[in-house]
Design a protein around this nucleic acid. Structure first.
Lengths: 329, 329
DNA sequence: ATGAAAGCGCTAACAC
DNA sequence: GTGTTAGCGCTTTCAT
């Protein structure tokens, strides 16, 4: 591959001038510019980005963490982030934590090693004080997760309100015994949802039982399992807020198989508004989340920080959610 | 951040010695090694990978192209690739082509710019001669796509056999009028499937009609649409090979909605064995593909090429597939 | 408007 | 075993 020196030599100019042309700097005569451009074309020259990035001390890369790529919610988040990043000339490396603390810390090492310019955490496995320590190596922001005090930008939606909205919908459908599902108990986002659930019950003078609350639920198979737990209960809820379309689909599938009518015997509400909602019978009522926008916003913010235009500070951005009513409630 | 020079100065050694310790070279006295390790620890020093990679002329990054991330098949492929790459100390950047030729060529520019060390194409949008030109900048290999003559490693499975197996299953279930779906007509992989379909019909003395063959089918919504096309046919197929679980799910969903019995009125077979097969009613018969292994193999191969241990040549690797019989056939 | 020269942080060929 | 030295390809002062 030719280098900038060869172009310079060929054109009888200094490499400074070639560099100026490459970077669209002013103060290069049209004459020289044209000559250089011609040489670049003829030699099929491209700047070596490895060298350029080294010199500029920038990787033009951002890291995105997700628990697992093959989860529809995160696949969409990745899509949003990748698309926006690309249009801003950034590359994205996706890092799966598999819900593991250590793996998340390894991701943050990328920042320390100058392998990425910034990190978007789409999931949060460690306590914040383990993570904040890495802020001195580059910007980090939270997307789709929440922390009560971290001094960084947090991009998400109102988890409390979304859960409240869903549970109120169930109540308005006449349900008085409503269950609740979540994934990881240490997620503050999940805790906010639970508060929304409890607040809705309280506002309508309803009560819950602890045995109606189920944790560690992530996918369809978990939904299969939780249905059987519900079925075996002496005092069963008549409706359930699942917090996850996959879990909702799993519950519905097993419910039908076991002779339940949905929504009559068990109403189910999902979360995320994934395509699966439209394909399950009955179709699934759910909460729509603007996932793509979540990713876009995160990219725009992290680039702002990388460029140094803004200094890091606490900044909560909440995008709107909406209830999508279908057949399962 | 401290540099290698500071460590060297602190320890009264040359940076060469520090570098040797960093890279686990032999011939460093235990005494100096310990002293250097201690200094590294105290100063919280990490090598600057931007500099190291520049020096070594390696990015330690591979690119993976997929049509779209939020497609379950590709999400799993990404998962397989990422996981394997990580364990080999490579980063992965995922690139979505959105089935666009130009976007694919932009991805290959990464290779030219030295932004990645190698490329795994999980989809193929351009003619091969447009792509082969980039081989001089680094290794490229095909995963899940096929080309009749490209002189590179191609990792996939026997598309012909998989389709043949699926169609024979339908025939054995008593069907004589069998339809076929595909996504893009220019994909050689898809063409091989079609040949498998035709061969199966031929071996059992059956015929097809051109109106039973449907193209440009990718997702659930496309499945919705194709069902209506089938329904409106005067002479309808009684079974359909969809080549895609999402499409199968869409067809089934609409079929049920329109009073069809599945599989009695219309048998449907999917492809990929995604989780969706287990959640749709009836559950979907499909072809299982070892997607994760596909990704792993691709990574191992590309790293072999990057390391220069092997020179590029035509090499077809086909992993085994299997029929998973469920309720939709 | 242009060029000379320094240097980013690291590795490796070579000498001792 | 260890150090000296050159240099990867580029950008960026600074001088002219």
């Amino acid at each position: 591959m030719p280098t900038i020196d060869e172009i310079a030599r060929l054109c009888n100019v200094s490499k400074t001038t070639v560099s100026r042309v490459l970077n669209n700097h002013p103060y290069v005569s049209k004459e020289k510019r044209d000559m250089i451009l011609k040489a670049i074309n003829e030699l099929d020259y491209t700047p070596n980005y490895l060298a350029r990035n080294f010199r500029r001390n920038k990787t033009q890369t951002i890291a995105l963490s997700v628990p697992s790529i093959d989860h529809p919610f995160f696949a969409q988040l990745i899509k949003g982030v990748s698309h926006e990043a690309l249009s801003k000339n950034y590359k994205v490396i996706v890092f799966q934590t598999f819900y593991d603390k250590q793996t998340e810390l390894e991701l943050l090492e990328l920042l320390k090693h100058k392998e990425v310019d910034g990190v978007i955490l789409g999931t949060l496995e460690n306590d914040w004080d383990k993570i904040s320590h890495f802020l001195r190596y580059g910007p980090i922001l939270l997307c789709n997760e929440y922390h009560h005090s971290a001094d960084i930008t947090i991009i998400g939606y109102d988890e409390f309100e979304a859960a409240y909205m869903g549970v109120v919908h169930l109540i308005e459908r006449g349900h008085e015994k409503i269950g609740f599902c979540f994934d990881t108990p240490y997620s503050e986002a999940q805790c906010q949802r639970k508060e929304g659930y409890l607040k809705a019950l309280q506002d309508y003078n309803l009560h819950h039982r602890n045995e109606w609350i189920f944790g560690e639920l992530f996918n369809i198979e978990d939904g299969f399992r939780v249905f059987h737990k519900i079925k075996d209960l002496k005092d069963r809820p008549s409706a359930i807020f699942t917090g996850n379309d996959q879990v909702a689909a799993g519950i519905i599938k097993q419910a039908i198989k076991n002779g339940f009518h949905v929504p009559e015997d068990l109403a189910v509400i999902g979360f995320d508004n994934q395509l699966i909602c439209q394909v399950v019978t009955p179709t699934i009522t759910t909460i729509d989340i603007p996932i793509i926008e979540l990713g876009q916003q995160a990219v725009l913010k992290i680039i702002e920080y990388i460029s140094g235009n803004t200094s890091l500070n606490r900044n909560i951005i909440k995008l709107p959610t909406s209830l999508i009513i279908r057949e399962s409630t």
